[in-house]
Design a protein around this nucleic acid. Structure first.
Length: 472
RNA sequence: GUCAGGGUAGCUCAGUUGGUCAGAGCGCCACACUCAUAACGUGGAGGUCGUGGGAUCGUACCCCACCCCUGACACCA
């Protein structure tokens, strides 16, 4: 059986990870874990986008070689995943030799289909930023916002172009037929709308000078480097053996799910399928699009200085508190707000009072009783179905409804007053509770595990509070 | 400017094809309880559903106008 391949977008490693990256990784992890619980063999692929000019610039600023700069930052990303208990299988760096090779192979395949051609490109180039701008991106004086007073240069360059226009209607059709499913639906509409408009071919290469010699070389043309997006998307394939391990590749590709942020939807829903169609390769099945975080109502930005460091919040509140926040305190596919205050509140009320307290009272009520509960084997169908629809918040809501129901049941039926039949009563309660814990595993793995291991064993020791309250 | 999606209790949002649809959670207040992390449970206050028209026996839900917000708009994650 083909493995379940799920990916995160590969972040630029020009800076440290922020809470927005954590969001995407955790969401992806939930889907991956839920598949594993359903006994599906999973490949969770993530990695780093290292071939961008921005990385060269960032490395220069910090006075480090690009290679080691990227390596160091990529390691930080992988550490963050460990801290968040995100279980990935592959971390593919786009600077790796296999990736370069795989991307050149992809290029050759597109070229063989006649979809790559050369064309003169003319644009406004800001020397300061080393990027091209379109007129509406500039300020009123027609200058770059970062470097006012410096007029932009009109640069003419011979680049390679990809025949995107050739595939537009076909991709629109595939999307409407849900052969490529885009979740949520409003994102699908956005893309179909775009595809039905005037779709132009895209430039897929840069001059070596402009790319500062950093990136994947275009085959048979030493003067050109691939445009980062052409090779970046291909990380999804190069990470599972495309171009170097046919067996691995065919057992994994195509991707079952790409989890991405709303800002890069077009690359995934338009450019990527077009490139794959051109190369006669299989298309990803589903693209799940999440929103962005604001912090205390403000856009996260380095200049405001409100970038939230996931390491810090995890250290203070613990992995599962942070995972909980990312998964339930915001709608899975909309924008959300992150606030430490809210995180503390949620930890102390919903996690400690609802779930943690339920665990404590169950432990105390059942400790003296003798009975057996059966270990759950299946994640409940409603939860699984929500996860498959990329409605992770709704899945959590469903679980919490059961937590509340159980709390209410215990309060109203007062099992501590029972003189006989208490063991039987608690058996039922605990049976339901372990199912809740089982369903909780994809979301809060540590908590689910703690509950299961305690209540499934016969020897009953003291039960440590799951979520001790955190004040200040 | 063009296109798309929104504006519902203090906050975050549900409200399927118009007729118990004025809701949930959090926050707040009161009551009750003690198995439990001063937790759990019950009850309550709170909204002229963006504004103004219109169609309808009847509309958050349909139509028109206007105001405000968000997103996409091509080589930029």
């Amino acid at each position: 059986m083909k493995k379940f391949l799920i990916t995160t977008a590969i972040p630029y490693v020009n800076a440290k990870p922020h809470i927005g990256h954590a969001l995407e990784f955790v969401q992806t992890d939930v889907i991956a874990r839920s598949q594993r619980l359903r006994h599906r063999e999973v490949v969770f692929l993530t990695g780093s986008d290292e071939n961008a000019l921005k990385n060269v610039q960032a490395a220069e600023k910090s006075g480090v070689e690009v290679e080691s700069f990227c390596k160091h930052n990529a390691e930080t990303f992988s550490q963050m995943m460990q801290v968040l208990q995100v279980q990935y299988d592959v971390f593919q760096r786009s600077s790796s030799p296999q990736h370069h090779q795989a991307s050149q192979l992809l290029w050759e395949k597109c070229k063989a289909s006649g979809d790559i051609y050369q064309k003169e490109y003319e644009g406004l180039y800001c020397v300061g930023c080393e990027t091209f701008y379109t007129v509406d991106e500039l300020n009123e004086q027609g200058e770059c916002v970062e470097h006012p007073g410096k007029p932009l240069e009109k640069v003419k360059e011979n680049n390679y172009f990809f025949r995107l226009s050739k595939y537009a209607t076909r991709i629109a059709d595939l999307i409407e037929k849900k052969e490529i499913q885009i979740v949520p639906e409003k994102r699908e509409k956005e893309i179909v709308n775009f595809l039905k408009g005037d779709v132009q071919d895209i430039s897929i290469s840069r001059s070596v000078e402009r790319a500062r010699g950093w990136g994947v070389p275009v085959p048979h043309d030493v003067s050109q480097i691939m445009y980062v997006w052409f090779d970046a998307l291909n990380v999804y394939q190069s990470g599972v053996g495309f171009g170097n391990n046919e067996l691995q590749y065919t057992s994994s590709w195509p991707a079952d799910v790409h989890v991405i942020g709303k800002g890069i939807l077009r690359f995934h829903a338009v450019y990527w399928p077009a490139i794959l169609l051109s190369a006669h390769l299989e298309l990803p099945k589903k693209i799940c699009v999440h929103g962005y975080f604001t912090v205390n109502g403000q856009k996260m930005s380095k200049t405001i200085g409100n970038v939230v460091d996931p390491f810090n919040v995890v250290e203070k509140f613990g992995t599962d508190s942070v995972r909980y926040y990312l998964l339930r305190e915001m709608s899975t596919s909309e924008d959300g707000d992150f606030s430490i205050e809210r995180l503390r509140e949620v930890r102390n009320t919903i996690l400690a009072n609802d779930l943690g307290n339920l665990a404590s009272r169950c432990a105390s009520l059942s400790r003296t009783e003798v009975f057996t509960v059966i270990a759950p084997t299946q994640i409940s169908t409603t939860v699984a179905s929500y996860i498959d629809q990329f409605k992770l918040k709704e899945a959590m809501d469903e679980i919490w409804e059961r937590v509340q129901t159980l709390n209410t049941k215990i309060t109203q039926e007062k099992p501590w007053t029972l003189s006989s039949g208490k063991a039987k009563y608690m058996e039922e309660v605990i049976q339901e509770f372990v199912q809740i814990a089982f369903d909780l595993q994809p979301f809060l793995p540590e908590t689910g595990e703690k509950i299961l291991s305690y209540f499934l064993q016969n020897k009953k020791e003291d039960f440590a509070p799951l979520f001790p309250k955190i004040h200040q």
